[in-house]
Amino acid sequence: MKIVKINEDNCIYCHLCEVACVVEHSQSKDIIKAFKREEKPTARCGVEFNYPLSLSVMCRHCDDAPCMEACQNGAMHRDDRGYVVVNEDKCVGCWMCVMACPYGVIKRDTRRDVWGLSTKCDSCPDRDVPACVEACPNNALMFEEI
């Protein structure tokens, strides 16, 4: 299975992976509309910086995913492609997955009315190569077999 390989030596801290992720997961998939018209989705990757280091981290799609184990109602599940994804209609925002994720890559989206929403990398189901990988100008993110 291919996942996004993180080459931190090439990360230039431009945040374009986050931008691409937001656009990909927006309704319009249009960069201007996603940022200025819609309620902007949360980026699934997170860029960290500690001079001179920077790197973007997103879900590693574990074989034995602790987030799935911890999920109280199966919202966190493995899809047909083998990636760990959240069923947005089921997620109740209990943050058990946040507590379980050994990579710390599940983010909290608290903007829904009743339920919170765990937000994580879904490896872009509508694309061959995830948006962040395509956007990365310096090949710091590569979609590779692991």
Binding site: I12, C14, H15, L16, E18, V19, I31, I32, F35
Partner: peptide, 13 residues
């Protein structure tokens, strides 16, 4: 300004 989405990529670069 219409195009600028405040992503701050330019700021970091």
């Amino acid at each position: 300004d219409y195009r600028c989405i405040r992503c701050k990529a330019c700021v970091e670069q």
